[in-house]
Each structure stands twice: as C-alpha cells, then as structure tokens.
Computed example of a mutant assay.
Amino acid sequence: MIYTHDTLVNLQEEYDNTKIQEIIDELEQELIGLIPVKTRIKEIAALLLIDRLRSKLHLVSGSPGLHMSFTGSPGTGKTTIAMKMADILNRLSYIKKGHLLTVTRDDLVGQYIGHTAPKTKEVLKQAMGGVLFIDEAYYLYKPDNERDYGAEAIEILLQVMENQRDDLVVIFAGYKDKMDKFYESNPGLSSRVTNHVDFPDYTAQELIEIAKLMLEEQQYKFAPDTNTILLEYAERRMKQPHFANARSIKNAIDRARMRQANRIFSSGDKILTKADLVTIKSEDILKSRLFSQAN
C-alpha cells in the first residue's frame, strides 16, 4: 500500500505534543543511578509512541502488552518509576486518568468465604483508568494453605487484566526470586505480563548522592568532612540484614538530623547562624549505633 503525503504523521510533533520528554528528563534529574531501568522505561515509551503513530495511519498494531513486572530489593525506586510510567501511559492515551493505586495482599484478600471477591473488585474499581501497583505480589499465592483465598483474588485479577486491558494496567512488584516463582505458579498470569523491569541495588556512592539530594530537598547540607564517614556507613549498612537501599539511607539521614538538633539544643546560649541550622556534621553520623553498628 502506498501512503500519500496527507497520511503522514510527524514523529517530532507527536513526541512534543505528548510531552514524554518531560517525564524522561524528570527520571534523569530525580533518580540517581538505575541506568538499566531508565533505559527500559525509554524503550517501553518509544514502543508505545510508535504504536500510537501506527494506529493513526491505520497500520496493523501488535497491541503491546501493558501489564508489567518490577523486580528488585526494597528502596530501589519501584514505586517512583511506577508513578512515572502511569504518567507516560496517560499522556499517550493508553489509560484515561493516570493515577497510581498501590496495594498489598491485605487490600485484596479477605479472611473468610465470600470476602475476597468484594474486596478485590472494590480495589479494581478504584484503580480503573489508571495503574494498579501490587507490592510483594507473591504473597497472593500460598500453595501450602488450601484455605487461603489469595487464588480467588488472582483469578479476578486475571479476568480484568484480559477483558479490561484498555481501562487498567497492573504492575506486580517484589523480590526477583520470589516473583519468578510466583509467575511459575500461574502460567496465565505470566503470559499477561509482557514488560519485565529489574531494579538493581544502589552502589555505596550512589547512596551518598541520594543522601545529598534528600538533604537538599529539606534545605540541609553535609559538612565537607562528612562524605567519607557517610560512605563508610553506607558500605557497612549494605552488608547487614534488612538493607533497603534508599530507604535505609533516608532512615540514616533522619537520625542524623535528630542528632544535629540535639547537638544544637545542648549548645546552651550560643548564638546560632543559618549555617549551624542547615549543616549535618560528621559527629551527627558517628554517634551511637548510627555509625558504630551501622543500623
């Protein structure tokens, strides 16, 4: 088939109209590291944009699957990326509202017969037109408990994912090894999830950059001699149980601010300057368990 000039579409114009670049720029500015994740999101956005252009020319479309899987450790930015993805899908008109609804097993599964279906359907009703983000999704499936109602919630989800895919996008999230087993347990679920994004853990240096951004947002800053101490803290904390990437660093920063406040409060009648109020010193990190035991 030959297309005449009036059937052509302008890629740059379409790109500008949807303002996808704004979201891509936000990803670069707001999130440290995560290069593989950012690359994958750009690829998905590009595919969806081209699919939209093909539809305008009445070309056969592969109807790209929109349901996704985000795998990785806690604190690696999965929820943040899900929010950006919801925005992209909305700007490309794949979803009508663009909101993100985050839920866990407790929001979907009931505790007695007849309780699960209404709970799951109510959540789906709230999520329609947007993205449903199910965190630690593998807890929906408990094969060792024959009286568990998680399987019922999964079946309802599967029906909606297939029959109302123009109204809802579902993102399943959790640890990669557990998510892999979750998909193996239900081939129907696995076949409906076509976009898999793996979130790597942050490096110690990336955690320091994240800490600086967090402080900057709260109008604080580190003293010049603090970086080395914080880097050592991050390296120690990464080796301990329950490490949660950016979440652990946020907790460390919150405790450092508390110690800074206590230090200032204990300074007596000293006249305070703006620098005193905004500066986190190395001693605010070194004191107590924050550094010595790297909690």
Rank of each mutant, 00 (worst) to 15 (best):
T120A: 11
E122N: 14
Q126W: 02
M128W: 05
G130W: 02
G130T: 04
V131Q: 07
F133H: 12
I134T: 10
Y138L: 08
Y138N: 07
Y138C: 08
Y139N: 15
Y139W: 09
L140K: 11
L140W: 14
K142E: 11
P143N: 13
P143T: 08
D144L: 07
D148I: 04
G150I: 05
G150W: 08
E152S: 06
E152P: 04
I156R: 06
E162P: 02
E162Y: 02
N163E: 14
Q164H: 11
D166L: 02
D167P: 02
V170N: 02
I171W: 02
F172G: 01
F172M: 14
F172H: 06
F172Y: 14
A173R: 03
G174D: 03
G174C: 06
Y175R: 11
Y175T: 04
K176P: 00
D177F: 06
Y183E: 00
E184G: 07
N186G: 07
P187I: 01
L189M: 09
L189A: 03
L189G: 01
L189I: 07
R192I: 07
V193T: 06
N195H: 04
N195Y: 02
H196F: 06
F199W: 10
P200D: 02
Q205R: 08
E206C: 06
E206V: 05
E209P: 00
I210T: 04
M214I: 13
M214S: 13
M214Y: 12
L215H: 11
E217V: 12
E217K: 15
Q218R: 15
Q218W: 07
Y220C: 12
Y220S: 08
F222W: 12
A223C: 10
P224N: 07
N227R: 11
I229T: 14
I229P: 00
L231D: 02
L231Q: 09
E232C: 05
E232G: 12
Y233P: 01
E235V: 09
E235C: 00
R236K: 15
R237G: 00
